[in-house]
Amino acid sequence: MIPLSWYLIVAAALFCTGIYGVLARRNSVGILMGIELMLNAVNINLVAFWRYLAPDTTTGQVFALFVLVVAAAEAVVGLALIISVYRDRRSIDAEQIDLLRW
């Protein structure tokens, strides 16, 4: 049997990888990829806890499923925003998108 902590370690490493991608990328699409990695790490945690703590219920899987749906909606709206900004500003560099900067 694989210990639960192995899954938690993998999820933590994947989450930190995603955080680095979000913070360090210039390209907005790259930032979105980092967010997807972070959401996947969260899902690994949810499913691992479901499997090891309460496998006879469905709560953990339902939660992970909702995270999946919200991630899909977030990706769609985020990419639509990026396309719109690209059409308007001809750039998707996150450092140059400062229309709302005061």
Partner: peptide, 15 residues
């Protein structure tokens, strides 16, 4: 350059 000016700080924070 694909990384912004705070890439080093980002690596430190995530690490």
């Amino acid at each position: 350059a694909q990384l912004n000016s705070q890439a080093g700080l980002a690596a430190v924070v995530s690490g």
